[in-house]
């Protein structure tokens, strides 16, 4: 099987999982052609997310590298499209501080400072059994969702201008 087909197959299994999962909304695969991008992508609505119970967009794809021995599976979750200009500096600082601590993946501010995303990439052995790969993809995607959600409350407090970055980190470190 060609690697591209394999990647698509893996995305399809994740799609199937999300179509059945509670708290997930629409999920569907967009082909490279549709996206006019070098790779296929699964887009899923992650419902009841974070303290506001909003729906956020999850995008899951393989990095379009030629490499076949190791393939890179990436999850990107868009947490907000509307970071206010005046909060951008604080959010950036908060993200930087949080990233120091969080176990995997990272938060990031998009190019225009308006998008707050979480991203997480895992390498997967390209020639491994499909079953193993499927579960690796699923674990990675779910880890990304749950990690992104876990610290979202802290970032929200920053966005709401409720606490300073230092206070937030202090809270987080003290397990509050």
């Amino acid at each position: 099987m060609k690697m591209d087909e394999k990647k698509l197959e893996l995305l399809k299994s994740l799609e199937a999982e999300y179509k059945e999962a509670e708290d997930m909304g629409e999920a569907s695969i967009f082909t490279a052609k549709e996206l006019n991008a070098p790779m296929d992508m699964l887009r899923a609505e992650i419902a009841a997310f974070g303290p506001d119970l909003v729906s956020v967009l999850g995008e899951f794809f393989f990095m379009p590298f030629e490499e076949t021995e190791v393939i890179y599976f990436t999850s990107v979750i868009t947490l907000s499209n509307t970071v206010p200009e005046e909060s951008a500096d604080d959010v950036a600082a908060a993200v930087a501080r949080l990233n120091y601590y969080i176990p995997c993946g990272c938060y990031a501010l998009g190019e225009d400072d308006k998008n707050l995303v979480f991203k997480y990439t895992v390498p997967i052995v390209g020639e491994d059994e499909t079953e193993h790969q499927t579960s690796a993809v699923s674990i990675a995607a779910n880890t990304a969702i749950m990690t992104a959600e876990r610290y979202m409350g802290y970032l929200k407090l920053i966005l709401m201008n409720e606490v300073t970055v230092d206070e937030m980190i202090e809270m987080a470190k003290n397990g509050k």
Binding site: Y100, Y101, I102, R150, Y151, A172, K173, N174, G175, K176
Partner: peptide, 18 residues
């Protein structure tokens, strides 16, 4: 320090029961 913090924070998330 990073790992320490990470674990505390992970534990903190668990301590959500708090």
């Amino acid at each position: 320090g990073m790992v320490t913090g990470a674990l505390t924070m992970a534990a903190g998330a668990m301590a959500m029961t708090g």
